[in-house]
Nucleic acid binder design. Sequence first.
DNA 1: CTGAAAGCGCTAACAG
DNA 2: CTGTTAGCGCTTTCAG
Lengths: 338, 338
Amino acid sequence: MAVTLKAVALAAGVSTAAVSKALHGGGKNVRISEDCANRIRKVAEDLNYRPNAVARNLRGQRTHNVGLIFENFGSFADGPLYYTLLLDGIGQTLFKQHYRLTILPELQSENILGTFGDGQLEGVIWCKLARDEATLQLIHDCPIPIVALNAPAPVAATEAVFVSCDNENGIQLAVRHLLEMGHKKIAFLYEKEDANTPDTVSRREAFVAAAGDAGSVIEWGWKLTEFEKWWAGNPEETAIIGWSERTAGQLLRQCKAAGVSVPDKLSVVGFDSTPFCETTQPRLTAVRQPIQEMAIRATETLLSMIGGNRPQSSSFLFPCSLDVRDSTAPPQSGGVII
Amino acid sequence: MAVTLKAVALAAGVSTAAVSKALHGGGKNVRISEDCANRIRKVAEDLNYRPNAVARNLRGQRTHNVGLIFENFGSFADGPLYYTLLLDGIGQTLFKQHYRLTILPELQSENILGTFGDGQLEGVIWCKLARDEATLQLIHDCPIPIVALNAPAPVAATEAVFVSCDNENGIQLAVRHLLEMGHKKIAFLYEKEDANTPDTVSRREAFVAAAGDAGSVIEWGWKLTEFEKWWAGNPEETAIIGWSERTAGQLLRQCKAAGVSVPDKLSVVGFDSTPFCETTQPRLTAVRQPIQEMAIRATETLLSMIGGNRPQSSSFLFPCSLDVRDSTAPPQSGGVII
DNA sequence: CTGAAAGCGCTAACAG
DNA sequence: CTGTTAGCGCTTTCAG
């Protein structure tokens, strides 16, 4: 049905090679007169010829197509704008270089290698890549370059490149901010459901290290309904750092419901400072993770690897910063009062 | 480099046809003994054979790949979760049917038809499709089925299917809600920058029709900085309907900044009720548009069209509902006071 | 029951 | 300067 190169050649009374040359100007060994080329172009135009990319991909062993895989797409634990910023960063980088982006179903079953090795993808960006042995093995067997985004690099060296934020430094910033304000006891909060995500784990560890004796760790359920009872118990803590933006946002709502005013009675810090933090009441002080820049870097790195270059490094760590907004303040009844 | 079907055939001492049959069991005319098939499968396994999908696509003229195009990706006018919900709905439907999703660069230049006709895509979901003549023509010339999501159907019939929410009914709900509460003057607010998006237009028109004499229309800049001056002018309006969730959220912030308490002094309604509305202060009353269901329906329709079926209808309108939260209340100094 | 062979649509060596 | 031709990796019809 579709008009092919051959059809154009036939109509123009030339060979397919001539048409290919005239339209895309490939092979150096083929020469063609301007007249002839123009005639061919005219015929192609008239016939409404559209090159078939699949055939071209097969022939050229290139697809200009990059895959994107989310370990847990649709779970909003990462903040409302997470996926939007991510996609935007990846997309803008890719499209500029005339690559396409294919969203892959979250790794179902065992045929991931089949998917990665089927010739349709030139590389993969893998978000929140799990850290287990199986995955590491998989990375090893993967025929195309992989960049892991938002996943801390494993201890063992792998062929993949890891792009992530510096959770440790982010948590340190939050802890220091609170300590400097005079808080003596700070809690780190995460949800049971997210207990094992790499980010939760590494942030928790960073917190324990940074806060030392001043720190405690709280694990509640997704809804944080435990808050009210906890608060009723007159906890020593005067500040809570939520492992994610979502957690902190949810906590603010619980505080409001329980009549606990923030930041007067309790200071709250979130992780991942997106425009969402501007919309909460009070506006949420949060660690900023440069998602979009990370996405751009991940994509650039992947494209460079596809181009055959060895990556400059096997791990890129993006420093976090702290956006101080209205949800943190010195403790009301701090020990500083003499 | 990659091990091909031929390589497997060679290693197993059989023909490529036998291998193809043994591994994927296609052609009915080819028969093969269990023994032979098993031997072939073993060899393929040992050799780590991965079928090349590009070749298969070319041969079979099918790619199981659907394209997605956003008219304005990355503009957050649609609310923080818009893209996430959308992608989630599309993805879950597609992946279940073993289709892939390709994100297309937002229609650059003129070669859209080239993109749609290059054989890589079996169909396209087009978000916020513009309404102009050129686009209609393009739809007409498009060799693959198109479903327009979140774009009101044009007057003229086209080959494309349109899935959108019922803006008219949504606006009516909002207006009625406010009128019933006793508001006498209601404004519809949109940003200059969004003045011509189909949704803005159709909601504005719906508003003018629904509110009649009680209605007025406001066009401000993206930041809504005009609010304070407007308010200082002692407007008659006691309620504002924002064309989008974002607009309404931004308005709430302006109100706060100006010391105008919502809903006491001013009621605010948004369009597009996502979890975002739960996070504002006060929680935002908003028209709910079932984004995810719409995305699912759009995808299902597209897949059915790809399967060769004629769509049941050329336009699906999803009814809106109203999520009443805390940003609306009866006017403080309503005319009802005797 | 099995293998040879003809393409899907395109490109780039090669020979003329 | 142009055209013929051999594949890219796969499926499937056809002859053995």
